[in-house]
């Protein structure tokens, strides 16, 4: 029997990390989260626990890429064929956390020729890889900074286009690969390539809790969970469901939300002030602000929402060359924001 995962609601503290993860489940277009921190700070626990909060999604029955039947333009070749022949049967299943192990090989990540089918029938068939499984789900890379360069290249390619193109071993294929990229890393073990860093919509730095009371409760809960996982999960079911309901409600609200010009301008101002490269920061600020407003149950996005999410969006984009520390002077930023946008 599968061992239950530690419930999200039972994680003590680490509010920024939890918020970053939740915002992404509300709007997957935010672009994922990078969680940096030393070991033992509940990074992996939180990501795995997220699985218990994820909303359901509709997928084409039996499609290895988990195609969304409503997005006809984005179907994989086999679903397109099925659509031509008739209707696409669909089922509802929960979003998943798909893990990408560090030792993965290129062919398993991108997908490759199905050798078994080639040898036994002589027919070319595509065997989907992790990027197919990740479509519509969360792609989780533990210790993402240790991932081999050429695997990172594949991730970047897929993340940039939302499509995985394969041209290898006699196979030419493409399928949707839209995923929420969640990575964890311990910065002491090496840096992340700036290009990959920039692909993460949000970043949080987690530190171990210093507060004695909190530390005690972390240990106590963990021990309770170890002793009786099922019972523990039952205890937190209600709280977990509550968070899940909030996410679902926020997703509904988000559909009707559109950030006004004042919000966009606020985001642009912040990016200009901090002098980040490129325009991805502006867009992420706005999308995260929209999700945050939705999470608060509001339909109107305010500039203050942008400033609230800035601490998640900006820190990892501050670095202009590989030798500068990426740090965001939050005090300075807040003072500047107050000055530029009045009350905050």
């Amino acid at each position: 029997m599968k061992r239950p995962t530690y419930p999200f609601a039972a994680i003590v503290g680490q509010e920024d990390m939890k918020e970053a993860l939740i915002l992404n489940t509300i709007n997957p277009l935010i672009g994922g989260v990078l969680i940096r921190g030393e070991k033992g700070t509940a990074k992996s626990t939180a990501v795995r626990a997220l699985a218990g909060l994820l909303p359901d999604r509709r997928v084409v029955t039996g499609c290895p890429c988990g195609c969304d039947p409503e997005r006809i333009g984005e179907l994989c070749p086999s679903c397109q064929e099925r659509l031509m022949q008739g209707e696409l049967p669909s089922t509802v299943c929960a979003m998943k956390v798909v893990e990408l192990p560090l030792s993965s090989t290129e062919d398993r990540v991108a997908g490759t020729l199905d050798i078994e089918s080639a040898i036994s029938t002589g027919k070319k068939r595509f065997e989907p890889g992790v990027l197919a499984k990740a479509n519509g789900n969360i792609l989780y890379v533990d210790e993402v900074n240790l991932l081999d360069d050429h695997i990172v290249d594949l991730l970047l390619d897929a993340a940039a286009m939302g499509v995985n193109y394969i041209e290898r071993e006699g196979i030419s294929y493409s399928h949707p690969s839209k995923f929420i990229l969640v990575g964890t890393m311990n910065p002491e073990e090496g840096d992340l390539r700036p290009q990959l860093l920039d692909r993460f919509g949000l970043m949080v730095d987690v530190v171990s809790e210093k507060d004695e009371e909190m530390r005690t409760s972390i240990v106590q809960r963990r021990m309770e969970f170890e002793k009786n996982p099922e019972g523990f999960c039952k205890d937190y079911k209600e709280q977990n469901d509550e968070i899940r309901e909030r996410i679902l409600a926020a997703r509904d609200i988000l559909r009707g939300i559109e950030a006004g010009k004042d919000v966009v301008r606020a985001a642009v101002k912040i990016s200009l002030h901090l002098g980040v490269d490129g325009h991805r920061a502006d867009l992420t600020l706005i999308k995260a602000a929209e999700a945050y407003a939705a999470l608060q149950g509001r339909k109107d996005v305010r500039p203050s929402d942008v400033t609230h999410v800035a601490k998640l969006v900006m820190p990892h984009r501050m670095r202009r060359n590989p030798f500068q520390d990426s740090s965001l002077d939050t005090g300075e930023l807040e003072a500047w924001l107050k000055e530029s946008f009045g009350t905050n």
Binding site: G122, K124, L156, D157, G170, S172
Partner: peptide
């Protein structure tokens, strides 16, 4: 699209297994 992870045979031409199998004649993909 020319993806980063492409292999040479796929870009420049290699043998098409399916067709070659059937005929025994080398056919390019």
């Amino acid at each position: 699209n020319l993806p980063v992870g492409c292999t040479e045979d796929q870009v420049f031409g290699g043998m098409d297994v399916e067709k070659t199998l059937g005929t025994g004649r080398k056919t390019m993909v």
